[in-house]
Nucleic acid binder design. Structure first.
Length: 399
DNA sequence: CGCTTTTGTACGCGTTGCTC
DNA sequence: GAGCAACGCGTACAAAAGCG
């Protein structure tokens, strides 16, 4: 069965957001959420980083509860629904629905299918924009109101399942920390009396892009910088996204072999030098040669002293994170120095004890991977469900 | 006045240059 | 030469200016 298609403008008032002048303080700081694209894609919007006063809302456009908000400038297709009256900035077009014609949740889920459409229709300019008139002309399949509600109810259930799955992933991460404290005690008080050692005494190598004058040598050997895709040059963004496939940089085989000290093989502890200084990562094992870009310190531990997985979790405790944070300098450009890193002193148990914890983490990682696979599948099924729902192919009786 | 386009701002990151 | 602070470019996003 397929439903008649109608323009969004025929079931809702379309409103482009606006920002009150930042010159006037009396517009800001009230209790009305001021929504920007960063706050979308998280279901109901109940609050926001910025807020407006009633006076601020009066000079912009206040949206009632249950308005569907769609980002049409920049991050096209991000969607939210207002849980309370809100105001948005001008990147967001919102639908104030005629609830006699359309169910807000139904429209909210429909708008989640629009991303690719919006991307395709936007002109290929630096900042992608779908303007209000073109947005208003988009068509939505519109079954009877009762059917819309049934479809929305099915999607809501599926959406909840998806959220529960993400929640589970977070719980597994918390579990790692809980087990750490259980096995070794809180490092802040060191109740089990492990020997206090400086990080600097536990590793055999601490290096970065500048080490060994590698950069200068690269400059003198321009041919080393050619684009042949031999080895990955891993940068902070790749680690942050945990994605080593899309938008990555490569160096030649010659350059890779030349930069002996920045080779990584997986398992090294990495520490961010500039920017989010002090942020730590564990280098994953990848199936191709990898060289480290300039923004990370790389630590490889002495085999009889420490295991990187253990130290990673030790530095992830509240106490460990605080020890790093203390050593970050710079008002504008945050940096952490090698020496400061070396002198961090922490309770470090014998390697055998560390190993037991690492074995637990191995098991946990298997669980996490399973969880991720399930989560991925559920997301795909949810997307398929969305698609079917708006093609009129959703079997409501079975659901 | 509402909508669209241009300008402003913050931040990450490769690179530069100073100091010891 | 090694280590580190910071410059400046590119990008992404946010806000104001301009236009109908």
């Amino acid at each position: 069965m397929s439903w008649p298609k109608v323009k969004l403008s025929s079931i809702a008032q379309v409103v482009t957001g606006s920002t009150p002048s930042k010159e006037d303080d009396s517009y800001f700081g009230g209790d009305i959420p001021f929504v920007t694209p960063g706050e979308l894609d998280n279901g109901f919007v109940l609050n926001a980083k910025q807020t407006l006063t009633q006076k601020g809302a009066n000079v912009s456009r206040l949206l009632p509860k249950n308005s569907v908000m769609v980002c049409c400038i920049g991050s096209l297709g991000k969607v939210g629904i207002s849980g309370v009256p809100v105001v948005t900035n001008q990147q967001i077009n919102s639908l104030i629905l005629d609830e006699n014609k359309a169910d807000p949740m139904y429209v909210y889920f429909f708008c989640q299918t629009l991303k690719q459409t919006l991307v395709d229709m936007a002109p290929k300019t630096t900042v992608s924009i779908v303007n209000k008139s073109r947005f208003s002309d988009l068509e939505i399949p519109l079954p009877p109101l009762e059917t819309q509600k049934q479809i929305a109810a099915v999607l809501e259930k599926a959406d909840q399942l998806r959220k529960d799955c993400q929640q589970m992933e977070q719980e597994l991460n918390k579990l790692a920390q809980a087990v750490f404290i259980d096995m070794f005690g809180d490092p802040a008080t060191n109740p089990m009396g492990w020997p206090i050692k400086e990080i600097g005494d536990t590793f055999e190598l601490l290096t970065d892009y500048h080490a060994n004058g590698s950069y200068e040598v690269l400059q003198r050997n321009v041919e080393l910088l050619n684009e042949s895709n031999f080895a990955l040059m891993v940068r902070t963004t790749d680690l942050e996204k945990n994605n080593f496939v899309d938008n990555v940089k490569y160096i030649s085989e010659h350059a890779y072999n030349f930069l002996e000290k920045t080779k990584v093989y997986g398992g090294e502890l990495l520490v961010n030098k500039i920017g989010s200084a002090g942020k730590i990562y564990l280098m994953p094992k990848l199936d191709r040669p990898v060289s480290l870009a300039m923004n990370q310190f790389m630590i490889r531990f002495k085999k009889n002293e420490a295991i990187s997985v253990f130290i990673y979790h030790l530095l992830s405790t509240e106490f460990g994170a605080e020890e790093i944070k203390k050593r970050v300098n710079g008002a504008v450009t945050k940096t952490i120095r090698k020496d400061a890193l070396r002198e961090i002193a922490l309770p470090i148990p014998p390697v055998d004890n560390q190993l037991k914890f690492c074995q637990f983490i191995d098991v946990l990682n298997v669980l996490k991977n399973n969880q991720r696979t399930i989560s991925h599948e559920i997301n795909e099924q949810f997307d398929a469900l969305l698609k079917n729902a708006f093609n009129g192919e959703l079997n409501l009786k079975a659901a």
